Every structure is written in C-alpha cells, then in structure tokens.
Simulated scan of single mutants.
Amino acid sequence: MGAPEPLVSRVNHAWSRLSEPERAVAEYLVTSPPRQVVLATADDLGRRTGTNDETVVRTARRLGYTGLPALKASLGGATGAPQVSFRRQVARDLPSATTHVVRDALGRISAFGRGLDVGELAQALRILGAASRVFCYGWGVNELSARYLALKLTRAGKAASASGATGVEFADDLADLSPRHAVVVFAPGRLLPELEVLAARAKQVGAGLVLVTEHLAGEIPADAVLRDPGSPGSLTAEPLCAMLVADLLVLGTLGDGDTYALLTRLREELQ
C-alpha cells in the first residue's frame, strides 16, 4: 500500500470540481500552518474562510477524507499527533487550551443538533417502545455509551443489558437475542465483523436495530440511524454526542416513573 496522497495534491486534483466556498476552505487548508488547522474546529475554519462548518466538513469529504478528523490526522506528520500537539499547548497556555476544548465540544453539540433527524429518532423510539428488552452494544470507548444507555434504561423501568465483547466471547450475546429485543449499536466509523454478524442476527430473530454512527449509515441494515458527529478538533471524547443520543432515547421511553421512585427511596435509605 502506497503512502496517502498529500493534502495539497488532493486539492490540486479536486480543484475544478469544488464550488467557490469549497475552494476558499481548500485554499486555507493548504496555506495555513498545519498545527493551526489541527487545533481549529469546523466552526473556526468556517469563520476564517467566510463559509460555515458544514462547508468545511463537505470540503474535507470532497477531498477524499471521511471527514474533518481524518483530514487533520493526515497532517500529523507535519505537526506531530494532534493529541501530542494539544498537550504541548496545554503545558504552555492552559486558558487557551481550555477554550479550544470547550469550543470543540460546543461545535460537536451544535452539529449534532442541526443534524438530528427527528423522523429517525421517532422510529428509534418506536423500536425501543415495542421491545421488552434492549441490548446495547459498542466496542472500545463506545462500550461506555452502550453501558450508559443500558443503565439509564434500566433506571427508567426498561429491561436492558450492554456488551462490548468481540470475537468468540460475543457469541453468548448473539445467542441471547430474540424477537422481544431491540438492539442499539454505537459504531461511529469503523465496521467490525461483529457488527455485520450482529445486524444479521437481529434480522434473523426479528429484533429491531438502531444504529448510532457518523460514517456507517448504509453500510449495514438498520431500522433507524441516528447521526453521531465526530470531534472537529479531535479534542473531546468520542462518546460525547453518543451520550446525548442515549439521553434522548431514555427520555422518549420513560414509563410511569416507578423505577425512579424506587431508586430515590433506596438512595434515601442508604444515606
């Protein structure tokens, strides 16, 4: 496999196909210091180029990247890894670094709100509402989102479990699925074989599947897809918006509140 095509080459090859706003973004990307690009959010880049964050993300994809984080990762050779570059900035200027992190988070949340498909959310809630049990799945750091959703659903009175298993250990989770289940998968951008097997198993047993993702819509069959935008500046935790999705799903499936009342009473007794 050859070396990845440099950013400037991608811009040259794509230039004739870019719109004027996209050209403004592309020109800024290749003429600015790499570190300045890496530490900027999509909103930052939009303001600096007289466009907007959506144009910035679209330009990155027109240049052949999966999104802005992938473009920034390609600049790592010139700047050092984004995380290392940022740690160095933290050591030098904590107030500035704090601002970058907060703006990155706000940018992600803003993009999440704009991209939320209410129709898909309603479909996801119908799937969860019709199920007697919910199986939540995510691997790596995304397992946190799966376990968070399962915990919140259980507290809301809906039976739920979570897993981050892979390989042969995942077989037990797959075997347990039934038509009474709804499946919620947190998979932002990497298609593991386990996900394909899980989707096939859910379809086989008649369990509805909700996919929370940034890049995998259309890659696997899902009954509802909820968008999970990545970190524009690669500075905030990957599960940030996935946790918001979990909160929305829980709020939409709240029952009569008896479980919350029980938890409140038990917490009072434990004090």
Rank of each mutant, 00 (worst) to 15 (best):
S96C: 10
T99A: 13
V90D: 08
V57S: 01
Q89G: 03
Q89E: 15
V37H: 00
L128W: 01
V38F: 01
Y28R: 09
T41C: 04
S132L: 10
Y137D: 06
A131W: 04
V84H: 13
A70S: 14
T41N: 01
A70K: 03
R155A: 13
A111Q: 03
D53F: 09
L125V: 06
V56H: 06
T55K: 01
T66E: 11
L63D: 04
G129P: 01
D43M: 07
R88W: 09
T59L: 01
T98P: 01
I127P: 00
R114A: 11
R114N: 07
V101M: 08
L29S: 03
L144C: 12
R48V: 05
Q123D: 10
L128R: 01
Y137W: 15
L106I: 11
H100D: 14
D44S: 02
D117I: 03
P34L: 04
A60I: 00
Q83K: 11
L128S: 02
Y148N: 08
P33H: 09
Q123W: 01
R147V: 05
G138M: 07
Q89S: 11
A91G: 11
G138D: 05
D53E: 14
N52A: 02
L144Q: 10
L116F: 12
L116Y: 03
L63G: 02
S132N: 12
G107Q: 01
V90W: 13
W139F: 14
A70C: 03
V118F: 12
P69M: 05
R47W: 05
L149V: 09
S85R: 06
T55L: 06
R62M: 09
L71S: 00
R108M: 14
D117C: 04
G80D: 04
L125H: 04
W139A: 15
T99D: 13
S85L: 15
R47C: 05
L149A: 00
F112R: 04
Q83Y: 10
Y28I: 02
S96N: 11
G50T: 07
R155F: 10
A122V: 13
T154S: 15
H100F: 09
D104N: 14
C136Y: 05
V141Q: 08
P95W: 10
